[in-house]
Simulated scan of single mutants.
Amino acid sequence: MKIEICKKNFIRNGCLAVAGILFLLFLYNLNQIEKESFYDTEGRNFVKAKVVEIIEDNETEGGNYIGSQTVMISILSGEFKGELLEANSSSSFLYGTHCEVGKKVIAIVSESNGTFVASIYSVDRAAMIYLIIGIFMLTIILIGGKKGLASVVGLGFTIICILFLFLPLIYRGVSPILAAVVVTLITTCVTMYLIGGWSVKTFASTTGTVIGVIIAGVCAILFSKMTQITGYNVSDIEDLIYVGEKTSIQIGQLMFAGILIAALGAVMDVAMSIASTILEINEKNQTLTRKELFRSGMNVGKDMMGTMSNTLILAFTGGSINTLVFIYAYNYQYNQVMNLHSIGIEIIQGIASSMGVILTVPCVSLITCMLVKRKEMHREVQK
C-alpha cells in the first residue's frame, strides 16, 4: 500500500515538475516582445548615485525650499559608474529631493555627443522597499509555518503571472477580460494546491473561487451597461487611448479585467475558509448530513459576507480618497456627485466584487458538502 502511495506521489510530483518547466518556457517565449517606443530614451539612463557635495543650496532663512539645488554626485551604477557629475535637484513633491552630503539618490543621466546632463529623480528607496517586503514575508512564515511558506510562494507566483503572463498577453492583443480569467484560473489552482495539497478542500475552494470571480466580472459588465459607464470613462483615458493606438491593447476592457483581478484575493479567502470549515466540522462529526453541513457553511459564510464586502468597499474607497476629498472640500452638489464617472466606477467595482464574494459562499458550501459525502460513500463501498 505504501509503495503504491509513494509511486502515485512520485508520478504526481513528476507531472507537476514537467508542467512547471513547460510553463516557465511558455512565459519566456511570451515575453519576447519588441515594445513600441513612445518617446526617445536613447542616451537617457536612471542610475544610482551618491551626493558628495552641495554646490548651491535652495534653503531660505525661513527653512523653506525654493527652486532647485545644484549638487555634485558620484555615479554608483551603470556605464557611467565612478563618474562625478553636476546635477540639479528640484524640491517638488513628485520629483527630485532635498539633497544632503552622503544621501543616496536615483539620477537621470543623459549623454549627447560626449556631453552629460544629470538631474535627481528621487531618493534611492529600493533597499527599504525590499526590507519591508522581507519583513512581511518573514512574518507570514513565522506565524504560518509551512502554510505561511506556501502562502508566500503562492503570492510570488501570482505576482509572476500578473507581470509575465497577464501584461504580455494583453500587450499582444488578447482580450484583457480573457487574460484576467486565465490568470485567475492558473493562480487559484496553484495557490490552493500549495495551501491545501491534493484534496477535496483544494478542488472545492478552487472551483468556488473561479465561479465567484466570474460572477464578479459578469456583474461588473451588467452594471456598466445599466449605468452607461464603459472602460473609456476612466481618469487616464487620454493616455490609454494613445497607448491603444500604438499597440494592440484593448483599452475598453481594462477596467473589467481589473475588477476580476481585484476580486480574486477576497473570493479566494472566502472560498478556502468555507471549505476548510466544512471539512473540519465533518471530521469532528461525520454523522452530519449534507444539508446540515451546508447550513454550517452558510452560517460561517454569512459572518464573512459582511466583513469581506466591507473590506472590498473600503479598499476601493481608499483608492479614490483624493476624489472624495475634492468632492467634500469643493462642496459638490448631489446630482453632480452621483453622476461623476469616477464615483460610478468605484461603486461598480466595489459592488461587483462584493457580489462575487457573497455568491461564492453558497457555491463553495454546496460543492464541498457534495464532495465530502461522496468521498465517504466511496470509502464505505470499498469496505
Rank of each mutant, 00 (worst) to 15 (best):
K104E: 15
K104M: 14
K104C: 11
S110C: 07
S112T: 14
G114S: 10
T115E: 15
T115R: 15
V117L: 12
Y121Q: 15
S122P: 15
S122A: 15
V123M: 14
V123F: 15
V123C: 14
D124E: 10
M128S: 15
Y130D: 07
Y130H: 07
Y130K: 10
L131H: 10
I132K: 12
I132V: 14
I133C: 11
I133G: 07
I135P: 08
I135A: 14
I135K: 08
F136P: 07
F136C: 13
L138V: 13
L138M: 13
I140R: 07
I141T: 06
L142C: 13
K146H: 03
K146G: 08
K147A: 08
G148A: 05
L149I: 04
A150C: 03
S151F: 05
V153P: 07
G154T: 00
L155V: 07
L155K: 06
T158C: 03
C161A: 12
C161Q: 12
C161N: 07
I162M: 01
I162Y: 00
I162R: 00
F166E: 08
F166R: 06
P168T: 02
L169G: 04
I170N: 10
I170E: 06
Y171G: 08
V174T: 12
V174L: 09
V174G: 04
V174A: 10
I177S: 02
I177W: 09
L178Y: 15
A180T: 04
V182A: 08
V183N: 04
I186T: 07
I186A: 02
T188W: 00
C189E: 08
M192S: 09
L194Q: 00
I195G: 00
G196H: 09
G196K: 11
G197A: 04
S199Q: 04
T202S: 13
T206H: 03
T206I: 00
T207P: 08
T207Q: 07
G208T: 04
G208N: 06
G208Q: 04
V210L: 08
G212P: 06
G212V: 02
V213M: 02
V213H: 00
V213K: 02
